[in-house]
Structures are given as C-alpha cells and as structure tokens.
Design a protein around this nucleic acid. Sequence first.
DNA 1: CGGTACATTGAGGCAAGTCAAGTTGAGTGG
DNA 2: CCACTCAACTTGACTTGCCTCAATGTACCG
Lengths: 242, 242
Amino acid sequence: MTVDCQNCPLRDCEGFQPMTDDTVHFMRRFKKGELQAEPGTQIMTQGSSSTHLFTCLEGQGVRYKDLPNGERQVISFVLPGDFIGLQAGVMGEMTHSVEATTEMTLCTFNRSDFWNLFKEQPARGFDITRIAALEECFLGEALAVIGQLKARARVAWALWRFQTRLEEVCEVTDGHVPLPFKQQDLADAVGLSLVHTNKTLARLREDQIATWSDGWLTVHDPERLAAEAAVADCETTPRPLI
Amino acid sequence: MTVDCQNCPLRDCEGFQPMTDDTVHFMRRFKKGELQAEPGTQIMTQGSSSTHLFTCLEGQGVRYKDLPNGERQVISFVLPGDFIGLQAGVMGEMTHSVEATTEMTLCTFNRSDFWNLFKEQPARGFDITRIAALEECFLGEALAVIGQLKARARVAWALWRFQTRLEEVCEVTDGHVPLPFKQQDLADAVGLSLVHTNKTLARLREDQIATWSDGWLTVHDPERLAAEAAVADCETTPRPLI
DNA sequence: CGGTACATTGAGGCAAGTCAAGTTGAGTGG
DNA sequence: CCACTCAACTTGACTTGCCTCAATGTACCG
C-alpha cells in the first residue's frame, strides 16, 4: 500500500513549497513505488552507482564518508522530505554512503527517468538544481562551523539545526523532536571525539539550554541555543519537495 | 574585445567535457559580455542577490563566508572555468561572498535568462545540476578533511587539490602552478591558525614534498603529497563548462 | 545472569591556538 | 639614495582545548 503523491503527508508541512496539480500528476508517474528499510540498512554506497533514487518519506538516516585512514565523517542527517541520490542521478557515482538509522519509508524513482525529468518538466529540473544549491549552502555552513567554531558552538549549532529542520517537517510534539542517532554520529558530524562531544552535551544540559536523551531532543532555551551556535542560518524559506 | 565561445581557450583543456556545436551556439547568445575585475574586488556578496552570473575565464579568487563572531571561512577557491552565482540564480541569494585575488576576466550572463536555460536547453540545465553536484561532492570532501584530519594532512590535501585542479585547466608550466593567495587564505580554508599553517607549510617544504612561495606552487613529490592527503579525491572526470 | 551496546566520568598528554618579536621585500617620500 | 611604513611571512615560547586511554554506569536481551 503506497502513498499517492496527491495525499503525501509532507505536502502540508511548512518546510515545503506548494506543488501545482500538474506537478503532482507528473510526480505520480515518476514515482515507481516505495521501499521499507530496516535500521542499519545501507541505502546508497560510497563509490557505487544506484539504479534508484529516493525521497525519504518517513524515518531518519545518516550520510557519511569513510576515509582511507578508517575515520568517518558524517556529512549530514537524512530527515523526511530529503532527496537521496542526486549525485548518482547526475554524476553516476555517489561520493558518500547513506544508511538508515530508524526504520525508513522511501519513495523510489528510476535513475533512467531522471534525464527525462529535465527534458519534460524543466520546472522540476530547476527544483532539483535548487535542492542541490540548498545542499551546497548547508555544507558551506557546516564547513564554517567545523572550521572556525569551538566544541560548544559546534554542538549547539547541530542541535539547533535539528530542532529547526525537524519543526519544518512536522516532526515536533510539544517542544520535543525525535533524534534517534548515537552520540558517536553527532561526534563524527561535528568533527569532535565521542568523549568531548559527550561532555559538551552534558554542559549544555546543565546550563538548561537543551537536553538530548533517549532519542529525543528538547530545546529549553531556543534563544540561547541560537546565540551559542553563532551562525546566521541560511535557508528558512520553503524548499522544493521531490 | 570579448572572446567568442567558439574560441574559448578553456574548451581545449582536459578538465572539461566537449561541447557540441549546438551548445556553443546557444552559449554565444547566453553570454552577455565580459567583466574585468581588479584584485580585491567583491564579485558577489554574501546575503545579497546579483543580476549577473559569471564564469571565470581568467584569474583566481576566493569564496568565503563571514561569521557573526568575526571569523572567516574560505569555502573554496575560484579557478578558471568555475561557475559563479549558482545560488543567486536558483535561490536568489548568495550564502557566501566571492572576491577576486588576481585580476580576473569573467564571462557574464543575465540572471533573468537562467530559467530559460532550463526550459530551452534541458541539457544545459542538466549540466548546471551536475556542476552543483560536483560542488556538493567537493564540499563533502572538504568537510571530511577538516573534520577528521590533522594539520599536515589538511594542508597537503589543499595543495594537492590546487595542483590537480590547476593542471586540469591548463595553468601549469613545467611543474609549477600559479597560486596567488595569502597563507591566511589557506589557513581560513583548512580551519587552522595562520601560524600553524605557516609551520606546516615549512615542514612540507623541508621534507621535499611541496614548495609554495612567491605565488607559485611546486610539487616535488606528487606520490607522497597524495599519500599525506589521505583522501580518495572524487572527481577526475571532465566536468561541464558553462 | 553474563554479554553487548551505549552513555558517562576522570586523568594525563599532545596538537594546535595565542602572543609576541623579527625578517623580508615592495612602495613612498624626503 | 636612504629612512620610513606597511603587508606578508617566519620563528620561538607559552597556553589550552581537545584527544586518548581507561574505568564505571546502565539498560536491554538471549
């Protein structure tokens, strides 16, 4: 039983641009089905291609790179509404892996239809490019945070982004947002050791700024959290949903 | 006196995909002129839009973000063939600034024509997306380097990327490539202090791996430099030229 | 109840930051 | 031609934020 794009639960979220009936109609044809992924499943693999592209409909995951020296860098976290496989679609090879953290529901598309999308629906092609640009914007921000800020600010920034992004996709229930990741994932994302990440989280908790435990994040003091993060975030405007 | 796209000197470089006559013909119309920028000129400004988009025809520059706390993060360096203003074209606002380091020659395009490009030349739209994906790929790599590697490896990686990228755009004369930036720029790019960057460069020089002085980079031992960098670089395949 | 996975805490060491002084070379003006 | 300034690069001494190691706590599960 798959979701009809017309009734896609994500369409109503404030984080996404409205979609014309015409576009919905096209997306119905473009969507090939759904895929259920168990926690821990490798959805895409660094260095390989993929016959399918996805949009995350439900659940959360991690994008990461394995380095030759054994380290791991988490590039970003996959939340509902995120498109997966742009690089595979356009370059033919992924430069990072994507893994499901929770159980995930994915809308699937054929990579072979991707080029048609640009030809037949230039507006959708433009949207894809916009998504790529938003990703570039996010990565630039991450680079600045990891390159220039101290541990406390890095962690605060990450939590702040989780809070706002999850709000945008309707994943909030009275102040709490679901955050199913391990501390190790966050550590690998902000470029800190697990131990230091843990201690930094503890301090933010003590200071009554934000608490993350048992898979849920609670921001007690949004103002101070944003202040700690010390970056003007880039994209609060609605983005395209594919 | 402007360069006709047909005779664009960059077309012959190994770093770029071949362009069909049809595409050249379209690009001739798309290109509105050329712009000469003096060293230090702000070509695009973080937080603002731009009526024009550019391709760097000659010269080098820096993309950077200013942070609220006064720090600066260099996102990447602009070399010949690089497209400038994707974010302005697609999102309407730049999230970083671009500044000319040397004198620069830029091909100019109208932002208002950008959408037409997707509609009338879907193949070019696809190329734009590919460029965006390559940028995403590069930023992911940078994130991994800055997040996970030590100073020596970070600097080695940066020098290695300079060497290979400049080779791809025909900017090499017997082993030397032009590198007109300040050590401070490199420091801001790899997330290290100026002092530590300087000392790291000195050590790479002593070890006969690479020398950077007077605006020129010489790689004495490519093998060891690449080994120090400790990342599998992502994109050695030709990329689209806009 | 032992085993595994994740979170937590303390102690010690090192990589990288900060501070400060000195060198070099280009540009300027008396 | 020399004295001065200024910007970039260099080097040494000291400080510190973060990493590493190692142990303990806690929940869950076969």
